[in-house]
Write a protein that binds this DNA or RNA. Structure first.
Length: 574
DNA sequence: AGAGGTGCCTCTGAAGATACTCCTATCTT
């Protein structure tokens, strides 16, 4: 049975929830949650590690006991502790926690005192007015539960970064309009450029918080007001997305922005650090006793606790503190560092614009080279090109290269066949400047076969880089099962490259694999995969993901000048 | 339950706003 790290993490989180409902030792609860987080961030498969008899206690937050439970789960698929807890609390009790306003204490009360085990039972109890008499509950709590269950609010969705940004756009415009706002910023996971967003966090500095809050909750897109206080409010928008707004005074904007940007675990770590220095830190500033010593800017806040400025994309408590303290924070790549783009389409296959239009637009965006990489023949749904079509396109590129001040590279997004061969004959591949190879079929192969397929493709002397290496579509399609570590190691040996596809629906490689590639010295190409002239906008999403992966200019292939690039990709095997 | 220092014990993830019910639970980064 195939058990993913996420499966083990889910079981650990379930155990943590149940222990919490049981009011067990809070540190024990945290230990299970920490272990779950470790497993979710881990790039190597824990099941493989068990098979290879690796020592799991080397992992942070995993000791003898939890290592034993991991072995138990990856071999049996379940865990005796969870089964035991399920005898005390039926599995369905767990879902009561998803109702906003219900935490472990109240869920415990509901089960122990009223034997409420399911959302249906909760609904009918609330409907019959039986909740209001339970100690710790009241009429308002009862109404809130009914409301939440009616609107399915417990099913918290996540949204793709690009969608979340566009929803935020109109709201920001509305908030800004009257002009009584000094500063306004989107914080939270959008600012950290996380690939999906759960809710919008907006921070405003103004001397009139009440007015701002009142206007906020009257925005025409608001369908529900969750909380409304003097300095903060939470609403739900028509699209289902929750928005949290916080208003502070101008002089504490930096401290509030740091707090509101998160991540949660980063914030906690910084506050702990402040504590160790005898300081106190909250969203109003850093305090020595009652004296505020920093608050206006994030840089000042970091400085007050002895840290250099840490970029939002690094704030995940994934090593940024160790790096900061040893002066080894990366100089993260910027959009302007990109010299070219190595993956784009024209209407010769499934793009919308002509070769010339794409080239002109790329030049307008400040790029000095663009690889044209239309699909190859067997991807018929995308009107893939055969040898003849590609030859014709190459002639056209030769012509354009004489008249445009931008270098067009002859390329192709070539299908990797099931057996790892490439979709076009060597005679044509050899004439290309760049071969972007990709898997678009047979996603269901076993891990071994999928990995072998890609490794074989990489061994082709013309192979330049692997497009969207995991094949995932964010919130739509899981990645295919592949040993990414082996692919990265092979890329290093073979001297070829991996793509970070910048389409907001892909962002593939993921941040953690970017880190792995960087540590192995494998360069990443941040590519738009543009199918129209507008899609060069994708690049900024790709750069966001690259920055989350700690990538610097030197780690990214397409920051090289055209001369250096041609040298690098010709060394990749041809 | 883990980590770290010592061989069993101590410490471990901050801080505040809001809503609710009656003193605290929940939510947020």
């Amino acid at each position: 049975m195939l058990i993913h790290n996420a499966d083990v993490a889910t079981i650990f989180n379930q155990i943590a929830d149940l222990l919490e409902i049981k009011s067990d030792n809070p540190f024990r609860v945290r230990a299970y949650r920490n272990a779950a987080r470790t497993l979710n961030a881990l790039t190597s498969s824990v099941q493989t590690m068990v098979a290879e008899k690796r020592d799991l206690t080397d992992l942070p937050g995993i000791g003898v006991d939890l290592a034993g439970k991991i072995v138990e789960i990856v071999t049996t698929g379940t865990c005796a502790l969870r089964e035991q807890l399920h005898r005390q609390f039926p599995p369905s009790v767990h879902e009561l926690l998803t109702v906003p306003g219900l935490g472990p204490k109240r869920v415990n009360t509901l089960y122990r005192q009223r034997n409420i085990r399911t959302l249906d039972q909760l609904y009918s109890s609330a409907h019959n007015g039986q909740i209001r008499n339970i100690p710790g509950f009241g009429v308002r709590a009862e109404q809130r539960i009914l409301e939440a269950l009616r609107t399915q609010q417990s099913k918290k969705k996540r949204y793709r970064l690009d969608l979340a940004e566009s929803i935020a756009g109109s709201l920001l415009e509305y908030l800004r309009a009257p002009g009584d706002i000094k500063k306004i910023e989107i914080a939270g996971s959008i600012r950290r450029r996380q690939e999906t967003v759960g809710d919008l966090d907006i921070l405003i500095s103004s001397s009139r918080p009440r007015l701002i809050i009142q206007r906020f909750v009257k925005f025409e897109g608001v369908t529900q007001i969750l909380t409304q206080g003097i300095t903060r409010a939470s609403v739900v928008l028509r699209q289902g997305m929750q928005v949290d707004l916080r208003v502070v005074s101008n002089d504490s904007f930096g401290a509030a922005l740091h707090y509101f940007t998160g991540s949660k675990s980063h914030s906690i770590a910084v506050r702990t650090l402040a504590q160790k220095r005898g300081l106190k830190m909250n969203e109003y500033g850093v305090f020595s006793g009652t004296r505020r010593i920093a608050s206006e800017t994030e840089a000042a806040v970091f400085q007050a606790v002895g840290l250099p400025y840490i970029e939002p994309e690094l704030r995940e408590n994934r090593g940024e503190f160790a790096a900061a303290q040893s002066g080894k924070l990366p100089q993260l790549i910027h959009l302007a560092d990109l010299a070219g783009d190595l993956h784009s389409h024209t209407k010769a296959s499934n793009g919308r614009n002509s070769l010339r239009e794409m080239a002109i637009e790329a030049k307008k965006r400040g790029l000095s080279y663009l690889a044209i990489t239309d699909h190859s023949r067997s991807l018929t749904v995308a009107h893939g090109l055969n040898a003849e079509g590609l030859t014709r396109q190459m002639d056209e590129i030769d012509q354009l290269n004489t008249e445009l001040g931008l270098k067009l590279l002859k390329g192709c997004e070539v299908e990797i066949n099931e057996d790892g061969t490439l979709d076009l004959p060597d005679s044509i591949l050899e004439r290309l400047d760049i071969v972007v190879a990709a898997v678009h079929s047979k996603f269901g192969l076993s891990r071994e076969r999928q990995t072998k397929r890609i490794l074989r493709a990489m061994d082709h002397p013309c192979f330049t880089l692997l497009a969207h290496p995991s094949g995932r579509l964010i919130l739509e399609r899981e990645p295919y099962d592949v040993d990414m570590q082996q692919i990265i190691l092979h890329a290093r040996q073979r001297g070829c490259f991996l793509e970070l596809n910048a389409q907001p629906s892909r962002l593939d490689l993921t941040d953690t694999y970017c880190m792995m590639a960087k540590s192995e010295g494998v360069l990443i190409s941040v590519n738009s995969d543009a199918h129209s002239i507008f899609d060069f906008d994708n690049l900024r999403f790709g750069i966001g993901q690259a920055r989350r992966g700690w990538l610097e200019k030197k780690d990214v292939l397409n920051t090289l000048s055209i001369a250096q690039l041609l040298l690098s990709i010709s060394h990749s095997g041809k």
